[in-house]
Every structure is written in C-alpha cells, then in structure tokens.
Design a protein around this nucleic acid. Structure first.
Length: 437
DNA sequence: TCTGGGGTCCTAGGACCC
DNA sequence: TCTGGGGTCCTAGGACCC
C-alpha cells in the first residue's frame, strides 16, 4: 500500500502559519510578477475563482470579498516543505518526496491499522509544523492519488481505499480529467472514445491502451486495476536539467537591458548548478515576447560547454554568445529562460564524468585548465560572499546595477524562517496574534 | 495596462554503425 | 532485373505534473 500525503492549499497554509489571523478568511498567493493565482484558500475556491487565472481579470472579486493577496515567497514555502517532509520521515523507512507539497510513503510492513496511521500522520504534521495535510492510502500510487482527490472533494482528513468495492465506488465518482497523468488533451480524446470516469478507464484493455496512448497509458490502466507499475522513486536522484526562467516586470526592447536580464539569470543558474554539485555540458537560452500580443516571437539557441561547466564566467560567456545570435531588434521581449542540460552526475569522479579533453580546444590544454581553475575559484568566492552578505552584495558587471526590469512582487511576506532580520515580532508596535496551543 | 516557474517522460524520425 | 537486418544515439516537439 502507498500513502500519499498532500498539504492542503500549501502556499496559503504556509502564509497562515505566521498569520493565524487569516484563518477562515479568503487568501490567495500569486505567481511571480503578481500575474496569476497559484494558490487559493477554501474560501477563495468557494467563490469559484479558478487556478491560474490572471489577477487583472478578477480585480472586482478581490475587492468585493476583501481577498488577502500574497506575492509568492518560495524561500518560505521551501523551508516549511522541508519541515513537513522531515516529520513524515519519522513514520516510515521509505518515502518519496514527489513535489514541494506531496510525498508518497511506502506502507509495507506496517503493523498499525491504516485509518489510525493516517490520522496520526495528519495530526502530527499539523501540530509540529502548522501545515494541514490530507492522507490517501491505496494499493498503487495512481489509486492513492484518487484517494487524496476524495479527501479534497469531501473535506475528509484521510481516505483509505482497500477493498475492490471501495475502489470501484471511488473510481466511478472520479471524472476522467481528475486522474493523475490524464491531462487536457488526453481527457478530450478519452471522452470521444466513451470513457468518462476513472472506472471506465479501469475497464479498458491495457493492450488497446498501449496502442492508442503509448506505454504511459497502459501503465495508467494497470495502476487503476491495482497493479503497481510506478515504484517509489529512490531519494537523491541527480537532476537531468536545471532552469532559470523569468518574466520581466515590463517589456524589454533594448539589447543592453535584455543582456543584463539574461546574464542575471545565468548567474543564478550557475549558482544552482554549484549547489547541486553538477556541471552542464549544454546551455540553452530562449527569449520571447508575450503570448497574448500580436506578432508573437520566440527565439532560442543552444551552445556546448565542452566538458561541462558550472562556473559563472563560462556560463555568462556562453549565454552572451547565444543572445548575440538570436536577438531580433525592436521586439517587446517579455520573458527569458535558460536551461542547463546534459548534466554530469554528482557522484562521478572529480565531479563530472572523466571526459576526454577536446581535440580542438583552443589555447592548449594547460592554459585552458588554468583558466577553468581560476573561474571555479572565482565562483566559489562569489558563493561565499553571497551567503554572508546577500545575493546583491557582489554581481558581475554585465548584470547591471539599476535593473528596473525586475519582477514585481510587492506583497511578499517576510522570510520568517530563513532570515534573522525578518523573524516574527511578538509585542511592540507590530503585535502579532499568535495562539499557542 | 495586466497572463508563472521548474521539471520529467515519451515518440518519431534521421543519421549512423556493423 | 535485383539491394538486409538489427541496432544505437540524438534531437525536436508534445504532453503531463506540481
């Protein structure tokens, strides 16, 4: 049996941990640039506000219902996520962190009654972290997903699907578009084939499904039939790609400004690579205008980083080269994104596979190695300085200093758990109502 | 006026190998 | 006249997830 633990309205719940006065009030968290709704409290869901809707379309509802807004504060959410996961780790030997707000637990060998077990998880996480969670338990991961769908819909705390009667009953009440792995396109196609519920899908021939929807479709059907095809993923797998993509606070037309933005994102990407102890062998960059405007334009390019790099100077140089190549003048760019691909594994010798050196390396092998070493030392120093004095304390020249193209986030909550200067104050002018149970 | 960010997996088709 | 069979690797694009 698999247990899926799913945090309720996670980002909103994180904000409420430090703002208990917002309990039972409508609260939303917005995407970067305060553009779209990415998390809603139950009160907001009850108003019929959908996930992902742009804020400007619902201004009137926000005002009318006095909805409390927050810019996204991923530092906070990431930190609270870590807390929740470490509490979950105390319950079972094997678990998979599936996303920032979800984890699968392997329930094999559990002596305890499952209803009791899930209740205990739910109350412990709430008490130790302040985050409310739902728990769904079933024989496969996909069925556990169905169980948590019921938790959300029916406002249960927990749901255990065990007997085939219970499972079939739950599946018959699950619309096909709610099944894990069936997206918008898939559900449209399935409906034209007469498959409307999860139960309908469970009853199709897996071999037919493979022909029509590839191996992924076949696995899905088998999972619904109770045959586990998706094992718990091992922990600490290396990432296969890393990205930094951002929309700008306003459209950018000038090359010089676009370059500042791209190089700023590149520095961040290099930092992420170093944090992960990985190197990239390829770097790709795209720049694009707004989807919603006429003459939509998207340009992209890829460049090789030779044997793999994660030092800031190498990546910055590569990104600038791509940008020169793909830039088209007089376009209102709205977004840029970088992706590091072909990442070397964390555990391989000397960080990165022991690759052959390139036959066509310029400047001779020794000069090249010396330069790489310098760049890596510089990057390490940069990391140390950023940790100590903040990420803005020292930047490379190409990133610019004014950068008024930066994303808007005017309603961000404090970094309550990661910055000494932003700890929650109790008493004084700014009294927070914290109830300690 | 105003529309997120970061990932994974799968397939098809082409180039290439013996 | 007539031209095989069995592979791997790479890339682009699509779909899906949170």
């Amino acid at each position: 049996m698999f247990a899926l633990i799913d945090c309720h309205n996670f980002f909103v719940s994180c904000e409420r941990v430090f703002r208990p006065d917002l309990e039972n009030k409508p609260v939303m968290v917005l995407s970067s640039n305060d553009g779209c709704v990415i998390a809603r409290s139950n009160e907001v869901k009850n108003l019929g506000i959908p996930m992902g809707v742009p804020v400007f379309k619902i201004r009137h509802l926000i005002k009318e219902h006095n909805i409390q807004l927050f810019s996204s504060n991923f530092l906070l959410y990431g930190n609270l996520s870590t807390r929740v996961m470490s509490v979950l780790q105390t319950f079972v030997p094997n678990m998979e962190i599936y996303s920032v707000d979800e984890a699968f637990l392997d329930c094999r060998g559990l002596k305890e009654d499952l209803e009791n077990f899930s209740g205990r998880i739910q109350s412990t996480v709430k008490q130790w972290t302040g985050i409310p969670v739902g728990v769904g338990i079933a024989p496969t991961k996909t069925l556990a997903k169905v169980a948590t769908y019921f938790v959300k819909k029916r406002k249960f705390d927990t749901c255990v699907l065990r007997s085939s009667n219970d499972i079939e009953d739950a599946l018959s009440q699950t619309p096909i578009e709610e099944v894990w792995g069936v997206g918008r396109k898939g559900s449209q196609k399935l409906k034209t084939l007469g498959i409307y519920t999860a139960l309908d899908l469970k009853r199709v021939d897996p071999r037919w499904m493979r022909k029509t929807f590839s191996v992924t479709g076949e696995r899905l059907v088998r999972e619904l039939q109770g045959v586990s095809c998706l094992p718990l993923e091992a922990e600490g797998e290396d990432k296969k790609s890393l990205q930094v993509t951002r929309s700008f606070g306003r459209p950018i037309t000038q090359f010089s400004e676009l370059k500042e933005a791209v190089l700023t994102y590149t520095c961040r990407l290099a930092e992420k690579l170093r944090q992960n102890q990985q190197k990239a062998q390829m770097l790709s960059l795209y720049i694009r205008t707004s989807f919603f405007k006429e003459d939509y334009l998207c340009r992209s390019g890829v460049i090789s980083l030779g044997q793999g790099a994660n030092d800031t100077p190498s990546l910055v140089k590569a990104a600038a080269q791509i940008l020169e190549k793909i830039f088209v003048p007089n376009c209102p760019y709205q977004k840029a994104g970088l992706t590091a691909i072909d990442l070397t594994s964390r555990n391989s010798v000397g960080m990165g596979k022991p690759l052959q050196s390139s036959l066509f390396e310029k400047g001779g092998e020794f000069a090249q190695r010396a330069q790489t070493k310098k760049n890596e030392q510089l990057s390490d120093a940069l990391d140390v300085i950023h940790r100590r004095f903040g990420s803005q304390s020292l930047v490379i020249g190409g990133c610019g200093l004014t950068s008024d193209w930066k994303v808007q986030c005017n309603m961000r909550s404090p970094a309550y758990t990661t910055n000494w200067n932003e700890l929650l104050c109790v008493g004084g002018d700014n009294i927070a109502r914290v109830s300690i149970k």
